[in-house]
Write a protein that binds this DNA or RNA. Structure first.
Length: 587
RNA sequence: GCACUUGUAGCUCAAUUGGAUAGAGCACCUGACUACGGAUCAGGAGGUUAGGGGUUCGACUCCCUUCAAGUGCACCA
């Protein structure tokens, strides 16, 4: 649509002798109830045209129609100039822009972006909240890559600390040598089981101490189990061989389990960082900050930054005993990542409960003048809530990621078998399809919502397969493929003179795809792609119902509609890939 | 208490970043060529955009305020 913008700039210059930038022109899709396909909002021009919005629109419209052969007409409603483009223009768009293989393939922009996501703790299996994180991180990576970035996907694994010691201790005390092999349990679930056991036994001890007269706070501190866990953490830090061996063993169980879950989710990483390697980093940055006067030291030796001028608080960056806190590590890790990759942007996909932490972290790195600090971004997403409220692992109200995927595949299976269209599929083929549809439903459900909003998930209603859903879009694709199996595309560059409304609207929707990718990349929002591809599928379905294809006598028109169908199928496929969703040939 | 975020149809979500009569899906009602694949399509009903004030040609969108919900305010991560 650049040619409309350029001509409008020219029109304004010519008519009103005023210079405007193309980027300042508000160009939008014409609403369905008016004639035309693109609309220029002309209200802002009245400032210098000194005429009514109607007259201004009419002036510019006339100019455009004289200037551009593809503009066949216009109408003006208040400050809206609705422009009609020739059918030949849209047909040309299909053949010269949309159908070629390089449609919506961005030229590399020479910039590198790192996306950190998932970042699990190694003491329990992944749950629904992690699922949202993983899908967001993966999809945003795909979108950025499609927008021309070189993308590095990283996972910062929280593999050390008191939480994993709790699981280790409980396993040592109550595990009786259980292993994933001996129990047949997935490694992460087995370790999670002992995390729960720890909590149960710990609570028991707290109650006992309270019964013996201690206050709740004292009991929490004095319970033997928590003391043992803290001791174990110290031994770990001291490099105690037995503790390290146990730690490695149990973490490996978890990694095997995670790998399985990641595979089912369809997410992947280019680089893993482990906190056991990074938790001591950052102290040199503390020194640097002190030298630069960005940080200050209190009498007890602790180091702080004063961010009250930025509307934040004073924040601790190093303990008085010289050990690291979360912030210290994250400063160090940011530096490590930058040293490794020298990326232009660095995205952290982390829940909104850490908004404050990242605000402080980024402010610090900017104040220190660190390279890459300007490119830091916290992709903050809302919590996933159940109808009963927040998920609480200790209260057993978490929705486990593996269970969830299994349930949804089961539902996809029930629905598919009910419809009986794939009875000739082999067993593997069926299993594959159920996974595709189930994951399509789940991923689409989680990704269609604006990341920053909290998300309500009702496990009882599970995920819908009809309406505004992933399977709706997958179905549209499968139907296009079915069509293309029955009739072959023979020619290219077929010329027809006139378009049906549905055809024009479908082409219009297709042309928007590259812009959608850019917008989604700028906003780090898979939801934009998700809502677009739904609109596109609806447009196709409308066309499909309204316009006959296979039964057509007119071979030229038939070929055109087949080409249009093929183009739609391709864009649906590409858009869904950006969401990490596969589309089937049949379903 | 302070800070940040959110509030749109009964429910789940949109709204081209300040533009036209606020749009979809689910659920509810009515229809569709003897199915080019009905996981589809067409139509109906459903709204004081949480309440109030302001800014301007124009506000779901920006500002102020009240209310409600969520999150954060550790020498935890």
């Amino acid at each position: 649509m650049n040619f409309i913008l350029e001509a409008t700039v020219k029109a304004v210059k010519h008519l009103y002798n005023t210079d405007i930038a193309a980027a300042d022109i508000n160009l939008q899709e014409t609403r369905k109830e008016f004639e035309g396909q693109v609309t220029v909002v002309t209200f802002p021009f009245t400032k210098f045209s000194k005429k009514s919005p109607e007259q201004t629109g009419a002036d510019i419209g006339t100019f455009l129609q004289d200037e551009l052969v593809d503009v066949t007409g216009f109408n003006v409603v208040k400050g809206f100039l609705n422009i009609s483009l020739a059918d030949s223009y849209w047909i040309k768009q299909l053949y010269t822009e949309i159908l070629p293989d390089n449609f919506a393939v961005a030229v590399p922009n020479g910039k590198k972006v790192m996306v950190e996501y998932s970042s699990p703790n190694t003491n329990k299996p992944l749950h629904l909240g992690h699922v949202r994180n993983n899908l967001l991180g993966f999809s945003v990576s795909e979108i950025l890559a499609a927008a021309g970035y070189e993308v590095v996907k990283t996972n910062l694994v929280n593999d050390r600390g008191i939480h994993i010691c709790k699981s280790m201790l409980a396993w040592q005390k109550f595990g009786e040598g259980e292993t994933p092999e001996s129990t047949g349990m997935k490694g992460d679930h087995l370790v999670g089981k002992y995390y729960v056991i720890f909590d149960k036994e710990y609570k028991k001890q707290i109650e006992e101490l309270k019964a013996a007269g201690q206050t709740e706070d004292d009991a929490k501190k004095n319970a033997p189990l928590i003391k043992e866990a803290q001791e174990m953490l110290q031994q770990w830090e001291a490099g105690n061989e037995a503790v390290i061996t146990l730690w490695k063993t149990m973490n490996n169980w978890v990694y095997t389990g995670f790998a399985d879950t990641y595979k089912k989710l369809g997410v992947s990483f280019d680089k893993f960082y482990y906190e056991s390697d990074t938790y001591l980093l950052g102290k040199d940055i503390v020194d640097e900050g002190l030298a630069k006067g960005v940080f200050f030291k209190k009498d007890d030796g602790s180091v702080w930054i004063d961010l009250t001028a930025e509307g934040l608080d004073e924040k601790l960056v190093l303990r008085s005993d010289g050990t690291s806190v979360y912030m210290t590590q994250d400063m160090g890790t940011a530096q490590l990542k930058y040293n490794d990759y020298h990326m232009d942007k660095s995205i952290y996909v982390v829940g909104n409960e850490q908004d404050y932490h990242f605000k402080v972290l980024f402010t610090i790195l900017n104040k220190l003048g660190k390279d890459g600090a300007a490119g830091l971004y916290h992709l903050s997403y809302g919590m996933v809530d159940l109808p009963s409220g927040k998920m609480k692992s200790r209260e057993g109200t978490v929705v486990d990621a593996d269970d969830l995927m299994e349930e949804i595949e089961q539902k996809a299976k029930d629905e598919a078998e009910k419809r009986g269209k794939i009875d000739d599929f082999g067993e593997d083929e069926k299993a594959n399809l159920f996974h595709t549809i189930g994951m399509g439903a789940l991923k689409y459900f989680l990704l269609k919502v604006d990341p920053k909003k909290r998300l309500l998930f009702d496990p009882n209603e599970s995920v819908q397969l009809e309406g505004h859903t992933g399977p709706f879009i997958q179905y549209t694709h499968a139907r296009i493929k079915s069509l293309l199996r029955k009739a072959k595309i023979t020619g290219n560059n077929i010329s027809i003179n006139q378009l049906a409304v549905e055809e024009r609207e479908l082409i219009l929707a297709l042309t928007q795809f590259p812009g959608i990718i850019q917008t989604a990349a700028e906003g780090y929002s898979p939801a934009i792609v998700a809502n677009y591809v739904y609109e596109l599928a609806k447009n196709y379905n409308k066309f499909y119902h309204q316009c006959p294809i296979l039964s057509l006598e007119d071979e030229v028109l038939k070929q055109f509609r087949l080409q249009l169908s093929a183009a739609s199928g391709k864009v649906i496929n590409k858009a869904m890939k950006l969401l990490g969703i596969e589309v089937p040939e049949r379903m």
